[in-house]
Design a protein around this nucleic acid. Sequence first.
DNA 1: AATGTTTTATAGTGAACGATAAATATTTAC
DNA 2: GTAAATATTTATCGTTCACTATAAAACATT
Lengths: 212, 212
Amino acid sequence: MPAQRPRQSEPRGKGRPRAFDRAQALNKALEIFWRQGYAPASVAELCKAMEINPPSLYASFGNKANLFLEALRHYEHTYWDAPARRFLAEADVYSAVEQFFQEAAEILLSPETPCGCMVVLAAVNISEDEKEIIAAVRALRLATKTMFADRFRRAIQDGQIPADTDVPALAGALNTLLEGLSLQARDGLFQSELKAIAAHAVRMLPPRSQHA
Amino acid sequence: MPAQRPRQSEPRGKGRPRAFDRAQALNKALEIFWRQGYAPASVAELCKAMEINPPSLYASFGNKANLFLEALRHYEHTYWDAPARRFLAEADVYSAVEQFFQEAAEILLSPETPCGCMVVLAAVNISEDEKEIIAAVRALRLATKTMFADRFRRAIQDGQIPADTDVPALAGALNTLLEGLSLQARDGLFQSELKAIAAHAVRMLPPRSQHA
DNA sequence: AATGTTTTATAGTGAACGATAAATATTTAC
DNA sequence: GTAAATATTTATCGTTCACTATAAAACATT
Protein backbone atom coordinates (compact mmCIF):
# COMPACT_ATOMS: atom_id res chain seq x y z
CA MET A 1 0.00 0.00 0.00
CA PRO A 2 1.77 3.15 -1.16
CA ALA A 3 1.53 5.62 1.69
CA GLN A 4 0.85 9.14 0.64
CA ARG A 5 4.30 10.48 0.15
CA PRO A 6 5.17 13.62 2.08
CA ARG A 7 5.68 16.75 0.10
CA GLN A 8 9.37 17.33 -0.04
CA SER A 9 10.70 20.74 -0.93
CA GLU A 10 13.83 19.22 -2.42
CA PRO A 11 13.99 18.33 -6.10
CA ARG A 12 12.78 14.80 -6.62
CA GLY A 13 15.65 12.31 -7.03
CA LYS A 14 15.91 9.28 -9.22
CA GLY A 15 14.98 6.10 -7.37
CA ARG A 16 12.13 5.14 -5.12
CA PRO A 17 11.16 8.18 -3.04
CA ARG A 18 11.61 8.08 0.71
CA ALA A 19 8.34 7.19 2.39
CA PHE A 20 8.95 9.09 5.64
CA ASP A 21 9.72 12.66 6.62
CA ARG A 22 13.33 12.75 7.73
CA ALA A 23 12.96 15.79 10.00
CA GLN A 24 9.88 14.34 11.63
CA ALA A 25 11.64 11.03 12.21
CA LEU A 26 14.59 12.89 13.74
CA ASN A 27 12.22 14.62 16.13
CA LYS A 28 10.81 11.31 17.25
CA ALA A 29 14.31 9.97 17.82
CA LEU A 30 15.16 13.10 19.78
CA GLU A 31 12.23 12.49 22.08
CA ILE A 32 13.33 8.91 22.77
CA PHE A 33 16.94 9.88 23.43
CA TRP A 34 15.81 12.80 25.58
CA ARG A 35 13.55 10.69 27.76
CA GLN A 36 15.73 7.60 28.04
CA GLY A 37 19.31 8.61 27.41
CA TYR A 38 21.63 7.25 24.75
CA ALA A 39 22.38 3.73 25.87
CA PRO A 40 18.92 2.55 26.99
CA ALA A 41 17.30 3.81 23.80
CA SER A 42 17.43 0.70 21.63
CA VAL A 43 17.46 0.89 17.87
CA ALA A 44 14.32 -1.23 17.89
CA GLU A 45 12.49 1.33 20.02
CA LEU A 46 13.84 4.21 17.98
CA CYS A 47 12.57 2.55 14.82
CA LYS A 48 9.18 2.00 16.33
CA ALA A 49 8.88 5.65 17.36
CA MET A 50 10.20 6.87 14.02
CA GLU A 51 7.84 4.47 12.22
CA ILE A 52 10.58 3.10 10.02
CA ASN A 53 12.57 -0.13 9.82
CA PRO A 54 16.24 -0.47 10.75
CA PRO A 55 17.57 -0.34 7.17
CA SER A 56 15.86 3.01 6.64
CA LEU A 57 17.39 4.34 9.84
CA TYR A 58 20.87 3.24 8.87
CA ALA A 59 20.52 4.53 5.31
CA SER A 60 19.37 7.95 6.49
CA PHE A 61 21.41 8.47 9.65
CA GLY A 62 24.40 6.12 9.41
CA ASN A 63 24.18 4.49 12.81
CA LYS A 64 22.79 4.99 16.30
CA ALA A 65 25.60 7.30 17.37
CA ASN A 66 25.21 9.59 14.39
CA LEU A 67 21.46 9.69 14.86
CA PHE A 68 22.04 10.79 18.43
CA LEU A 69 24.55 13.46 17.46
CA GLU A 70 22.15 14.88 14.90
CA ALA A 71 19.28 14.81 17.40
CA LEU A 72 21.52 16.49 19.96
CA ARG A 73 22.34 19.38 17.65
CA HIS A 74 18.69 19.75 16.80
CA TYR A 75 17.79 19.76 20.49
CA GLU A 76 20.37 22.38 21.36
CA HIS A 77 19.27 24.78 18.65
CA THR A 78 15.56 24.25 19.15
CA TYR A 79 15.47 24.70 22.90
CA TRP A 80 18.53 26.63 24.04
CA ASP A 81 19.57 29.05 21.33
CA ALA A 82 16.87 31.57 22.15
CA PRO A 83 17.33 31.54 25.96
CA ALA A 84 21.09 31.91 25.48
CA ARG A 85 20.56 34.87 23.17
CA ARG A 86 18.26 36.54 25.68
CA PHE A 87 20.75 35.85 28.48
CA LEU A 88 23.46 37.70 26.60
CA ALA A 89 21.13 40.47 25.43
CA GLU A 90 19.86 41.41 28.89
CA ALA A 91 21.92 44.34 30.12
CA ASP A 92 21.61 43.69 33.86
CA VAL A 93 23.45 40.56 34.91
CA TYR A 94 21.15 39.86 37.84
CA SER A 95 18.07 40.02 35.63
CA ALA A 96 19.85 37.93 33.02
CA VAL A 97 20.58 35.13 35.50
CA GLU A 98 17.10 35.25 37.01
CA GLN A 99 15.44 35.10 33.61
CA PHE A 100 17.69 32.39 32.24
CA PHE A 101 17.14 30.06 35.17
CA GLN A 102 13.38 30.53 35.05
CA GLU A 103 13.37 29.72 31.35
CA ALA A 104 15.59 26.72 32.01
CA ALA A 105 13.15 25.38 34.60
CA GLU A 106 10.40 25.61 32.02
CA ILE A 107 12.38 23.73 29.38
CA LEU A 108 13.52 21.01 31.77
CA LEU A 109 9.92 20.27 32.70
CA SER A 110 8.30 21.07 29.39
CA PRO A 111 5.01 19.14 29.13
CA GLU A 112 6.07 16.99 26.16
CA THR A 113 9.40 15.91 27.63
CA PRO A 114 9.60 16.60 31.36
CA CYS A 115 12.94 14.92 31.82
CA GLY A 116 15.74 17.42 32.30
CA CYS A 117 18.36 18.45 29.79
CA MET A 118 19.52 16.06 27.12
CA VAL A 119 23.01 17.56 27.10
CA VAL A 120 23.38 16.97 30.82
CA LEU A 121 21.76 13.57 31.20
CA ALA A 122 21.68 11.61 27.96
CA ALA A 123 25.28 10.41 28.13
CA VAL A 124 25.60 9.72 31.85
CA ASN A 125 26.75 6.16 32.54
CA ILE A 126 27.62 5.55 28.91
CA SER A 127 30.29 3.11 27.79
CA GLU A 128 33.71 4.72 27.79
CA ASP A 129 34.38 3.85 24.18
CA GLU A 130 31.58 6.07 22.88
CA LYS A 131 34.14 8.83 22.69
CA GLU A 132 32.41 10.90 20.06
CA ILE A 133 29.18 11.13 22.04
CA ILE A 134 30.94 11.90 25.29
CA ALA A 135 32.93 14.66 23.58
CA ALA A 136 29.84 16.17 21.96
CA VAL A 137 27.75 16.57 25.11
CA ARG A 138 30.79 17.63 27.09
CA ALA A 139 31.58 20.39 24.61
CA LEU A 140 28.03 21.71 24.90
CA ARG A 141 28.20 21.71 28.69
CA LEU A 142 31.51 23.54 28.56
CA ALA A 143 29.98 26.10 26.20
CA THR A 144 27.30 26.93 28.75
CA LYS A 145 29.86 27.45 31.49
CA THR A 146 31.89 29.63 29.14
CA MET A 147 28.77 31.64 28.34
CA PHE A 148 28.29 32.31 32.04
CA ALA A 149 31.93 33.30 32.49
CA ASP A 150 31.92 35.66 29.52
CA ARG A 151 28.77 37.31 30.79
CA PHE A 152 30.26 37.84 34.24
CA ARG A 153 33.42 39.38 32.86
CA ARG A 154 31.21 41.82 31.00
CA ALA A 155 29.33 42.52 34.23
CA ILE A 156 32.63 43.42 35.87
CA GLN A 157 33.44 45.82 33.06
CA ASP A 158 29.95 47.29 33.44
CA GLY A 159 30.56 47.79 37.14
CA GLN A 160 27.66 45.54 38.11
CA ILE A 161 29.68 43.06 40.18
CA PRO A 162 33.01 43.54 41.98
CA ALA A 163 36.19 43.39 39.94
CA ASP A 164 37.70 40.80 42.26
CA THR A 165 34.88 38.32 41.59
CA ASP A 166 36.19 34.77 41.06
CA VAL A 167 34.62 34.43 37.63
CA PRO A 168 35.52 30.78 36.87
CA ALA A 169 34.22 29.63 40.25
CA LEU A 170 31.03 31.66 39.96
CA ALA A 171 30.38 30.42 36.44
CA GLY A 172 31.12 26.90 37.61
CA ALA A 173 28.72 27.23 40.52
CA LEU A 174 25.88 28.47 38.35
CA ASN A 175 26.61 25.77 35.81
CA THR A 176 26.55 23.19 38.59
CA LEU A 177 23.18 24.42 39.82
CA LEU A 178 21.85 24.39 36.27
CA GLU A 179 22.98 20.83 35.67
CA GLY A 180 21.62 19.81 39.04
CA LEU A 181 18.21 21.09 37.97
CA SER A 182 18.14 18.38 35.32
CA LEU A 183 18.53 15.72 37.99
CA GLN A 184 15.70 17.30 39.97
CA ALA A 185 13.51 17.34 36.89
CA ARG A 186 14.20 13.62 36.41
CA ASP A 187 13.37 13.05 40.05
CA GLY A 188 9.81 14.22 39.50
CA LEU A 189 9.77 17.69 41.03
CA PHE A 190 6.89 19.95 40.08
CA GLN A 191 7.64 22.97 37.94
CA SER A 192 6.76 25.24 40.86
CA GLU A 193 9.39 23.51 42.98
CA LEU A 194 11.96 23.65 40.20
CA LYS A 195 11.35 27.37 39.72
CA ALA A 196 11.65 28.03 43.43
CA ILE A 197 15.04 26.34 43.34
CA ALA A 198 16.05 28.14 40.13
CA ALA A 199 15.27 31.42 41.86
CA HIS A 200 18.17 30.73 44.19
CA ALA A 201 20.70 30.94 41.36
CA VAL A 202 20.97 34.71 41.49
CA ARG A 203 21.79 34.52 45.19
CA MET A 204 25.18 33.07 44.37
CA LEU A 205 26.15 36.27 42.56
CA PRO A 206 28.13 38.73 44.66
CA PRO A 207 26.13 41.68 45.97
CA ARG A 208 25.59 44.44 43.42
CA SER A 209 28.61 46.70 43.58
CA GLN A 210 28.05 50.39 44.36
CA HIS A 211 30.10 51.78 41.49
CA ALA A 212 31.02 55.46 41.61
CA MET B 1 44.69 -25.81 45.04
CA PRO B 2 42.85 -24.83 48.20
CA ALA B 3 43.34 -21.10 48.67
CA GLN B 4 44.02 -20.06 52.22
CA ARG B 5 40.55 -19.55 53.56
CA PRO B 6 39.85 -16.15 55.07
CA ARG B 7 39.20 -16.05 58.77
CA GLN B 8 35.48 -15.63 59.19
CA SER B 9 34.13 -14.45 62.50
CA GLU B 10 30.89 -16.37 61.93
CA PRO B 11 30.56 -19.96 63.18
CA ARG B 12 31.65 -22.40 60.50
CA GLY B 13 28.75 -24.02 58.62
CA LYS B 14 28.48 -27.48 57.22
CA GLY B 15 29.51 -27.66 53.60
CA ARG B 16 32.56 -26.52 51.67
CA PRO B 17 33.71 -23.18 53.02
CA ARG B 18 33.52 -20.08 50.85
CA ALA B 19 36.86 -19.44 49.18
CA PHE B 20 36.55 -15.64 48.99
CA ASP B 21 35.97 -12.83 51.47
CA ARG B 22 32.42 -11.65 51.01
CA ALA B 23 32.99 -8.14 52.36
CA GLN B 24 36.06 -7.69 50.21
CA ALA B 25 34.21 -8.87 47.12
CA LEU B 26 31.39 -6.45 47.93
CA ASN B 27 33.90 -3.61 48.08
CA LYS B 28 35.23 -4.51 44.66
CA ALA B 29 31.68 -4.56 43.28
CA LEU B 30 31.01 -1.19 44.89
CA GLU B 31 34.00 0.28 43.12
CA ILE B 32 32.79 -0.98 39.75
CA PHE B 33 29.23 0.27 40.26
CA TRP B 34 30.52 3.59 41.55
CA ARG B 35 32.77 4.20 38.58
CA GLN B 36 30.49 2.90 35.85
CA GLY B 37 26.94 3.05 37.10
CA TYR B 38 24.50 0.19 37.43
CA ALA B 39 23.65 -0.70 33.85
CA PRO B 40 27.09 -0.53 32.20
CA ALA B 41 28.65 -2.65 34.95
CA SER B 42 28.33 -6.12 33.46
CA VAL B 43 28.18 -9.21 35.61
CA ALA B 44 31.26 -10.47 33.77
CA GLU B 45 33.24 -7.40 34.76
CA LEU B 46 31.93 -7.52 38.31
CA CYS B 47 33.01 -11.14 38.56
CA LYS B 48 36.45 -10.32 37.24
CA ALA B 49 36.92 -7.54 39.79
CA MET B 50 35.52 -9.67 42.62
CA GLU B 51 37.71 -12.58 41.50
CA ILE B 52 34.86 -15.05 41.56
CA ASN B 53 32.73 -16.85 38.97
CA PRO B 54 29.10 -16.04 38.24
CA PRO B 55 27.62 -18.90 40.26
CA SER B 56 29.45 -17.69 43.36
CA LEU B 57 28.11 -14.19 42.80
CA TYR B 58 24.54 -15.41 42.42
CA ALA B 59 24.82 -17.73 45.40
CA SER B 60 26.16 -15.00 47.66
CA PHE B 61 24.23 -11.95 46.45
CA GLY B 62 21.15 -13.24 44.64
CA ASN B 63 21.46 -11.27 41.45
CA LYS B 64 22.98 -8.12 39.99
CA ALA B 65 20.29 -5.86 41.43
CA ASN B 66 20.68 -7.19 44.96
CA LEU B 67 24.43 -6.91 44.74
CA PHE B 68 24.02 -3.27 43.78
CA LEU B 69 21.59 -2.56 46.60
CA GLU B 70 23.96 -4.06 49.12
CA ALA B 71 26.90 -2.12 47.68
CA LEU B 72 24.81 1.04 47.78
CA ARG B 73 24.03 0.66 51.48
CA HIS B 74 27.68 -0.01 52.18
CA TYR B 75 28.68 3.08 50.20
CA GLU B 76 26.23 5.32 52.00
CA HIS B 77 27.34 4.26 55.45
CA THR B 78 31.04 4.25 54.67
CA TYR B 79 31.25 7.66 53.04
CA TRP B 80 28.29 9.78 54.11
CA ASP B 81 27.30 8.84 57.64
CA ALA B 82 30.10 10.78 59.27
CA PRO B 83 29.73 13.99 57.20
CA ALA B 84 25.99 13.95 57.86
CA ARG B 85 26.55 13.56 61.58
CA ARG B 86 28.99 16.47 61.59
CA PHE B 87 26.55 18.58 59.56
CA LEU B 88 23.87 18.08 62.20
CA ALA B 89 26.28 18.49 65.10
CA GLU B 90 27.68 21.87 64.03
CA ALA B 91 25.75 24.57 65.88
CA ASP B 92 26.12 27.36 63.33
CA VAL B 93 24.18 26.65 60.16
CA TYR B 94 26.53 28.65 57.94
CA SER B 95 29.55 26.75 59.20
CA ALA B 96 27.64 23.49 58.87
CA VAL B 97 26.86 24.12 55.19
CA GLU B 98 30.37 25.31 54.41
CA GLN B 99 31.94 22.31 56.07
CA PHE B 100 29.56 19.78 54.58
CA PHE B 101 30.10 20.99 51.02
CA GLN B 102 33.87 20.99 51.41
CA GLU B 103 33.75 17.43 52.70
CA ALA B 104 31.43 16.48 49.87
CA ALA B 105 33.86 17.85 47.29
CA GLU B 106 36.57 15.69 48.82
CA ILE B 107 34.46 12.54 48.68
CA LEU B 108 33.27 13.13 45.14
CA LEU B 109 36.86 13.37 43.93
CA SER B 110 38.45 10.95 46.36
CA PRO B 111 41.64 9.56 44.82
CA GLU B 112 40.44 5.94 44.60
CA THR B 113 37.11 6.75 42.97
CA PRO B 114 37.03 10.27 41.56
CA CYS B 115 33.64 9.89 39.96
CA GLY B 116 30.92 11.74 41.86
CA CYS B 117 28.28 10.29 44.14
CA MET B 118 26.99 6.79 43.56
CA VAL B 119 23.55 7.73 44.91
CA VAL B 120 23.24 10.57 42.43
CA LEU B 121 24.74 9.01 39.33
CA ALA B 122 24.67 5.22 39.38
CA ALA B 123 21.04 4.85 38.36
CA VAL B 124 20.78 7.66 35.81
CA ASN B 125 19.50 6.39 32.46
CA ILE B 126 18.51 3.05 33.92
CA SER B 127 15.74 0.91 32.50
CA GLU B 128 12.37 1.91 33.92
CA ASP B 129 11.57 -1.58 35.13
CA GLU B 130 14.44 -1.62 37.62
CA LYS B 131 11.96 -0.20 40.10
CA GLU B 132 13.73 -1.40 43.24
CA ILE B 133 17.00 0.26 42.30
CA ILE B 134 15.35 3.48 41.26
CA ALA B 135 13.43 3.61 44.53
CA ALA B 136 16.54 2.92 46.62
CA VAL B 137 18.72 5.71 45.23
CA ARG B 138 15.77 8.07 45.13
CA ALA B 139 15.04 7.49 48.81
CA LEU B 140 18.64 8.29 49.71
CA ARG B 141 18.56 11.50 47.68
CA LEU B 142 15.33 12.50 49.36
CA ALA B 143 16.89 11.81 52.75
CA THR B 144 19.67 14.30 52.03
CA LYS B 145 17.18 17.00 51.06
CA THR B 146 15.19 16.27 54.21
CA MET B 147 18.37 16.53 56.27
CA PHE B 148 18.96 20.01 54.83
CA ALA B 149 15.37 21.06 55.52
CA ASP B 150 15.41 19.83 59.10
CA ARG B 151 18.66 21.65 59.74
CA PHE B 152 17.26 24.92 58.36
CA ARG B 153 14.14 24.69 60.49
CA ARG B 154 16.41 24.34 63.49
CA ALA B 155 18.37 27.36 62.31
CA ILE B 156 15.15 29.36 62.27
CA GLN B 157 14.38 28.30 65.81
CA ASP B 158 17.93 29.25 66.77
CA GLY B 159 17.42 32.68 65.22
CA GLN B 160 20.26 32.16 62.74
CA ILE B 161 18.20 32.66 59.59
CA PRO B 162 14.93 34.62 59.10
CA ALA B 163 11.68 32.93 60.13
CA ASP B 164 10.14 33.57 56.72
CA THR B 165 12.83 31.56 54.91
CA ASP B 166 11.39 29.25 52.24
CA VAL B 167 12.86 26.13 53.77
CA PRO B 168 11.79 23.57 51.12
CA ALA B 169 13.12 25.75 48.30
CA LEU B 170 16.39 26.46 50.09
CA ALA B 171 16.90 22.80 50.93
CA GLY B 172 16.04 21.93 47.35
CA ALA B 173 18.52 24.47 46.02
CA LEU B 174 21.37 23.18 48.16
CA ASN B 175 20.48 19.62 47.26
CA THR B 176 20.50 20.60 43.59
CA LEU B 177 23.94 22.15 43.89
CA LEU B 178 25.19 19.09 45.75
CA GLU B 179 23.90 16.72 43.09
CA GLY B 180 25.30 18.98 40.39
CA LEU B 181 28.72 18.62 41.99
CA SER B 182 28.64 14.92 41.10
CA LEU B 183 28.21 15.78 37.44
CA GLN B 184 31.14 18.18 37.64
CA ALA B 185 33.25 15.50 39.29
CA ARG B 186 32.42 13.15 36.41
CA ASP B 187 33.31 15.89 33.97
CA GLY B 188 36.90 15.89 35.17
CA LEU B 189 37.12 19.04 37.27
CA PHE B 190 40.05 19.33 39.64
CA GLN B 191 39.37 19.17 43.34
CA SER B 192 40.41 22.80 43.68
CA GLU B 193 37.75 23.79 41.14
CA LEU B 194 35.13 21.61 42.81
CA LYS B 195 35.87 23.14 46.18
CA ALA B 196 35.68 26.67 44.78
CA ILE B 197 32.23 25.82 43.47
CA ALA B 198 31.21 24.11 46.71
CA ALA B 199 32.17 27.28 48.56
CA HIS B 200 29.28 29.02 46.78
CA ALA B 201 26.69 26.84 48.53
CA VAL B 202 26.59 28.97 51.64
CA ARG B 203 25.84 32.03 49.52
CA MET B 204 22.36 30.70 48.82
CA LEU B 205 21.49 30.93 52.51
CA PRO B 206 19.66 34.09 53.48
CA PRO B 207 21.82 36.69 55.24
CA ARG B 208 22.40 35.98 58.91
CA SER B 209 19.46 37.45 60.79
CA GLN B 210 20.20 40.05 63.49
CA HIS B 211 18.13 38.49 66.22
CA ALA B 212 17.41 40.53 69.28
C1' DA C 1 7.64 -1.62 -21.73
C1' DA C 2 12.54 -2.09 -20.37
C1' DT C 3 16.25 -0.54 -17.47
C1' DG C 4 18.71 1.69 -13.68
C1' DT C 5 18.47 3.61 -9.06
C1' DT C 6 16.99 4.09 -4.51
C1' DT C 7 13.94 2.71 -0.58
C1' DT C 8 11.41 -0.58 1.39
C1' DA C 9 10.30 -4.81 4.52
C1' DT C 10 11.69 -9.40 6.00
C1' DA C 11 14.62 -11.93 8.31
C1' DG C 12 18.26 -12.61 9.89
C1' DT C 13 23.87 -11.91 11.64
C1' DG C 14 27.42 -12.39 15.51
C1' DA C 15 28.26 -10.54 20.01
C1' DA C 16 27.19 -9.42 24.66
C1' DC C 17 23.87 -9.54 28.19
C1' DG C 18 22.08 -11.65 32.90
C1' DA C 19 21.55 -15.90 34.80
C1' DT C 20 22.09 -21.22 35.40
C1' DA C 21 22.63 -26.58 34.76
C1' DA C 22 25.72 -30.00 35.58
C1' DA C 23 29.57 -31.97 37.40
C1' DT C 24 33.35 -31.74 40.57
C1' DA C 25 35.64 -30.42 44.98
C1' DT C 26 35.81 -29.72 49.92
C1' DT C 27 33.92 -29.50 54.21
C1' DT C 28 30.93 -31.24 58.53
C1' DA C 29 27.91 -34.67 60.74
C1' DC C 30 27.32 -39.06 61.99
C1' DG D 1 34.17 -44.35 56.31
C1' DT D 2 30.04 -42.51 54.31
C1' DA D 3 26.37 -39.32 53.46
C1' DA D 4 24.76 -34.70 53.39
C1' DA D 5 25.71 -30.05 52.44
C1' DT D 6 27.80 -26.22 50.35
C1' DA D 7 31.17 -23.98 46.99
C1' DT D 8 33.63 -24.47 43.05
C1' DT D 9 34.56 -24.54 37.79
C1' DT D 10 33.11 -25.18 33.12
C1' DA D 11 30.10 -24.54 29.72
C1' DT D 12 26.53 -23.06 28.50
C1' DC D 13 21.16 -21.11 28.30
C1' DG D 14 17.68 -17.86 26.11
C1' DT D 15 17.35 -12.78 25.14
C1' DT D 16 18.50 -8.63 23.55
C1' DC D 17 21.82 -5.71 21.43
C1' DA D 18 23.42 -2.89 17.11
C1' DC D 19 23.54 -3.83 12.57
C1' DT D 20 22.95 -5.90 7.66
C1' DA D 21 22.22 -9.25 3.52
C1' DT D 22 18.68 -9.94 0.36
C1' DA D 23 15.17 -9.13 -2.61
C1' DA D 24 10.82 -6.98 -3.70
C1' DA D 25 8.65 -2.41 -4.48
C1' DA D 26 8.46 2.31 -6.41
C1' DC D 27 10.20 5.82 -8.80
C1' DA D 28 12.87 8.33 -13.25
C1' DT D 29 14.70 7.82 -17.66
C1' DT D 30 14.64 5.93 -22.13
